[in-house]
């Protein structure tokens, strides 16, 4: 049976909690609703067209650009943002320790993408990492330390399994 949802007032499930969204504008993206209505500014916008990956979130477990999701259309979905990782995860720690962060604007998106990769593939080779992170632009680091950080996180998980 078809149900309809209201485009301006709706409820989103973000990081396990329900959030009421009021007076969203027509066609608002999930990114803008997260940032401007729910007050979660961890997801960043640098292109608004899915090219930079800074706004990456998990939508029902899948990594997407939240700028390309119509917010009012995902009321039935589970959304996980950078704030929902809980903080101080192995991937985040590796990013900090390996020098993968400079200005940090791309970092939340990259952390989401790297985390998602490791959940899908616990033992990626360097090309797997590149392919998984190719949608996340970084303008500061030249990516070398980011690759390093992902490898450190991979190694850490392997060690913990032994």
């Amino acid at each position: 049976m078809t149900y309809t949802s209201d485009e301006k007032h709706f409820e989103l499930t973000v990081n396990g909690s329900k959030h009421q969204v009021k007076d969203s504008f027509l066609g608002a993206s999930l990114l803008s609703v997260l940032r401007d209505h729910i007050g979660m500014t961890g997801s960043k916008g640098a292109c608004e067209e899915g090219e930079c990956g800074s706004c990456s979130v998990l939508l029902d477990g899948n990594l997407v650009c939240s700028c390309l999701v119509l917010a009012a259309s995902v009321t039935q979905s589970s959304i996980v943002t950078i704030e929902g990782l809980g903080g101080a995860t192995d991937v985040q720690q590796a990013f900090v320790e390996c020098g993968a962060i400079q200005c940090g604007f791309c970092s939340p998106g990259l952390v989401m993408a790297a985390t998602n990769l490791l959940d899908r593939n616990p033992d990626p080779d360097v090309d797997d990492v590149r392919e998984a992170l190719a949608g996340n632009l970084c303008r500061c680091t030249g990516y070398g330390r980011i690759l390093d950080a992902v490898q450190v996180a991979v190694d850490g998980r392997k060690r913990n399994k032994l």
Binding site: R35, M40, T41, G42, S43, K44, G45, T81, I82, E83, L85, G87, A88, Q92, Q93, F95, V96, E97, G99, I101, G104, F105, S107, P108, V111
Partner: peptide, 21 residues
């Protein structure tokens, strides 16, 4: 030495406030 960036953790966790935030 190469101590960690003082803003590194907040940037990795998304709590660091950029001017757009």
């Amino acid at each position: 030495q190469s101590p960690l960036r003082p803003d590194g953790v907040s940037k990795a966790e998304g709590s660091y406030l950029f001017s757009s935030d």
